[in-house]
Amino acid sequence: MSMADRIKTKLTERFHPLLLEVIDDSHRHHGHAGWQEGGETHFRVRIATRDFDGLSRVAQHRAVMSELDDELKERVHALNIEVIPADKA
């Protein structure tokens, strides 16, 4: 399973998002810190979920980072998180 699929599966199971996009941006970081041959090191996540209603932006990001802790320790060097309000999804 690709890293993007792993991220998508974990976030879907945990947050039941109304919208979820996982974009592998590794190709844009070739030669930069954390980049590895084969990519799957730099990701952008766009997510909308009711689970984040009432949480601060920091708490939302911490929840995503906590859920992806294994992936961040294993291979993912950078994670850009964009939380979209559930009522705008």
Rank of each mutant, 00 (worst) to 15 (best):
E21L: 07
I47G: 01
D69G: 01
H30N: 04
R57W: 03
G39F: 03
L11H: 01
A59Y: 02
A4W: 04
L68I: 04
G54T: 10
D69W: 03
A33P: 04
M3I: 15
L20S: 08
M1T: 14
T12I: 12
G39P: 01
R50V: 15
P17I: 01
Q60H: 03
T9D: 12
F43C: 03
I84Q: 02
L68C: 07
K88D: 11
R46N: 12
H32E: 15
V76Y: 04
M3Y: 11
A33T: 13
H77G: 13
I47N: 05
M65C: 09
G31E: 07
H42V: 05
V76T: 12
G38Y: 05
R50K: 13
D5W: 13
H77F: 12
H30A: 14
E21V: 11
F43G: 02
R46T: 14
L11D: 01
A4K: 14
G31I: 14
V83A: 08
P17Y: 03
E82K: 09
M65K: 03
E21Q: 03
H32P: 00
D69L: 09
M1K: 00
Q36T: 14
P17M: 10
K88M: 14
L11S: 06
H32W: 07
A78E: 07
V58S: 06
A78K: 02
A89G: 08
E40Y: 03
D5S: 15
P85S: 13
S26R: 02
R28I: 11
M65W: 00
S2V: 06
I84A: 10
L55C: 10
L68F: 05
G34R: 06
T12K: 05
R50E: 15
L55A: 11
K73S: 11
F52D: 06
V22N: 04
S2T: 15
W35I: 06
G54V: 15
E71H: 02
D87F: 06
G38P: 02
H32K: 12
K8L: 13
A63D: 03
N80L: 14
E13D: 15
G38M: 07
S56R: 01
K88N: 11
G34M: 11
V83Q: 04
L20I: 11
G38I: 13
H27P: 00
F15D: 08
D25N: 09
A4D: 06
R6P: 04
Q36P: 00
D51M: 14
E74A: 14
A4G: 06
D24T: 13
G34A: 11
M3A: 15
R57V: 14
G38K: 00
S56Q: 08
E67C: 15
L55R: 12
K10I: 15
E37L: 10
E21G: 07
L55F: 06
H27K: 08
I23M: 00
A86R: 02
G39Q: 06
K8F: 09
R50L: 11
D51E: 15
H77C: 10
V64H: 01
D24I: 13
G39S: 07
V83N: 07
V83D: 09
S66L: 03
S66P: 00
V64R: 00
A78I: 11
Q60V: 08
I7G: 04
E21P: 00
E40G: 12
A4P: 05
H29I: 05
V58T: 09
F52T: 10
A4T: 10
R75E: 04
